[in-house]
Simulated scan of single mutants.
Amino acid sequence: MKCIGLLGGMSWESTAEYYRLINREVARRLGGLHSARIVLASVDFAEVAALQASGDWDAAGRLLATQAARLEGAGADLVLICANTMHKVADAVQDAIGVPLLHLADATADAVRAAGITRVGLLGTAYTMEQDFYRDRLATHGLEVLVPDADDRAEVHRTIYDELCRGEVLDESHRTHLAIIERLRARGAEGIILGCTELELLLDPDADGSVPLFATTRIHARAAVDAALA
């Protein structure tokens, strides 16, 4: 079994889900007392969020690249950035290490295409929804990506940073996000990418929504196990 390096803390709420999901999937596949070989570098999200807000992505890239190199030094055979937004600096992270970076958008696009869907709505932070680093990566896989209107984008972003990253899961926000999903469906979205790992704390892919919801944390975790057991 290969060792999985988790670059987490963005936020720790979703990083905890990565750890749980990866270990549960390894146990499911191998049985018995098996668990995953994992090394974790968890950053201070307040520092990262400040760099995001100021637009200093170069500094954010250097911060994550340093941590990724430490993961490799600790024995990681592959690395995951446990956040959608921070894949904006994925190239800087990959350049800093000699082991593969398992890109979340690639794994997600594979899952969407496997479901026979080519037009998807994207929910995430404002950075993920409004900048091109994530949408363009999905487009290279043949996906057409729709994002909510400005007011809905602002509400999704607010919910992520003001509630979910702080461990708050509110019924009102759940209802609001179901309405946002419905508006994307009405515009032609055949499925919705939950393009922020915290959104899976609010929305249940097995029960919510009028179209399939693609849970990026679950997808990324399964892809990590695939790679570790290959």
Rank of each mutant, 00 (worst) to 15 (best):
E47M: 09
D56E: 09
I219C: 13
S54Q: 15
A223W: 02
D58Y: 06
H177Q: 09
L199S: 06
D136L: 13
R28S: 15
R119V: 02
P148R: 06
I192Q: 03
V120W: 07
Y134G: 06
I193T: 08
A221V: 05
V120D: 04
A186Y: 13
Y134K: 05
V43F: 06
V156E: 01
T66M: 09
H174K: 01
A27L: 15
D151R: 08
A154L: 11
T140E: 08
L203N: 00
V39L: 02
P148S: 01
I160M: 02
E130W: 11
E47H: 07
D77S: 12
L71M: 15
A90M: 12
Q131H: 03
I193V: 13
A69I: 04
H174T: 11
H157Q: 15
A111N: 04
V145E: 07
T140D: 10
H174R: 15
A90H: 08
D106S: 07
A228M: 11
I97S: 02
D171C: 08
Q94S: 13
R153C: 10
V26G: 03
G61W: 05
I192E: 01
V89I: 14
V39R: 09
I219E: 01
Y18Q: 12
R183T: 02
A189M: 00
E155A: 02
S54E: 07
A68N: 09
L202R: 09
R137L: 04
V48W: 14
S11C: 11
I97Y: 11
G55M: 03
L104G: 02
A41M: 14
G124R: 01
T108K: 01
D226F: 03
K2I: 03
